Amino acid sequence: MTDKVRAKKHLGQHFLKDEEVAEKIADTLVLKGYKNILEIGPGMGMLTKYLLKKPVTTYVCEIDRDSVAYLKANFLQLSDKILEKDFLKYDLTETFKEEPFAIIGNFPYNISTQIVFKTLEMRDQIPEFSGMFQKEVAERICASHGSKTYGILSVLTQVFYEAEYLFTVPPEVFDPAPKVNSGVMRLTRKENYTLPCDEKLFFRVVKTAFQQRRKTLRNSLKTFNLSDNLKEDTIFGLRPEQLSVQRFVELTIKIANDSIQTQ
């Protein structure tokens, strides 16, 4: 065994040291609809070793050179499956072409939401996603409408994926221990994940609405120059957290039709 890797603060590294938790996270993947897994930020392979037991091909994406050297020395079966890349900048089609793959990981807190957004962009190829986040972020992604944590991330994720909060992980199972609890969640792509409305407009409506979440939609969506007729619709008397994902889709369609009629 090569020397252990020291966690680097600037990379947001917190190495998992609990075997039971690692195995439990590996088991969150259902393994349907794909033959490849990509683990982000494997570190010293605590989660990786359980993924390698699965009947799929495991790839790992790791930016830390020390961790890459450790993995190459200790996981010979990974030798040609280590992507020494920045996940957020790397074009994953170079590795997977058009093949579907799942994403899993004990994600660095500082880029976890960006990992989710990249997954949404590549949703055609990613039927399943699971992993560990800061607890608050995992809860926000999985939140239902009506809750205080429901927001932009919840809607933009749940319009394409079913989101499930699975379990909470305490700080002491990491080295070094973070100051907060972690949460493991799973995203399962919906059977019908194509939007029946303009995607750019949908993202704009959701983001604009939640930027002033305490206001009613009538006030927060003023920049869309809505017709007086549309503003009388009862949906505009609601605040954004009161709208389900489906109602945000309906709202976007109403706004799109309104702009066509007022041109």
Score class of each variant (00 low, 15 high):
S227F: 10
K215L: 01
K215P: 07
N192Q: 05
K200C: 08
L187H: 00
K190G: 10
F210Y: 00
M185Y: 01
F224A: 02
K179V: 06
L230F: 04
K231R: 15
N225R: 02
A209G: 06
P196Y: 00
T208I: 14
E191R: 03
V184Q: 04
T208N: 04
G183F: 13
T208Q: 00
V205Q: 02
R186F: 12
L201V: 12
N229Q: 13
K231V: 14
Y193F: 05
M185S: 03
L217E: 00
N229R: 09
R213C: 11
M185P: 03
K179Q: 12
Y193D: 05
F174K: 00
Q211F: 10
D175G: 10
R214I: 08
L230M: 02
G183K: 15
K215W: 03
V180A: 04
L217P: 06
C197T: 03
F174V: 07
T216K: 09
A209I: 06
Q212A: 11
N225A: 09
K215V: 01
R189F: 02
V184D: 14
K200E: 15
L195Y: 08
M185W: 08
F224V: 04
G183C: 04
F202Y: 05
N229C: 13
L226A: 02
V206P: 02
D228L: 13
T188L: 10
R218V: 12
R218Y: 15
T188G: 09
C197E: 08
N229A: 13
E191M: 06
F174A: 06
K200M: 02
P196H: 02
F202H: 11
K231N: 13
N225P: 00
E199V: 14
D228R: 06
S227L: 09
R214L: 03
N192F: 14
Q212R: 11
L230C: 00
K231T: 13
K222N: 04
M185R: 03
T208L: 12
R204M: 14
V206M: 09
P178H: 05
T208F: 09
V180M: 05
R213S: 12
K200H: 10
P178D: 06
V205C: 11
Q212N: 09
P176E: 07
F203D: 02
V206Y: 04
P176G: 14
E199R: 05
E199I: 15
F224M: 03
K222Y: 14
N229I: 11
L230D: 01
D233K: 13
D175T: 12
P176C: 07
L201C: 11
E191S: 09
K179L: 08
E199L: 13
Y193V: 07
F203Q: 03
P178N: 08
R214M: 07
K179R: 06
D233W: 08
L187G: 01
N229F: 13
V180D: 03
Q211S: 14
K222S: 11
D198S: 11
L217C: 15
T234N: 08
Q211D: 08
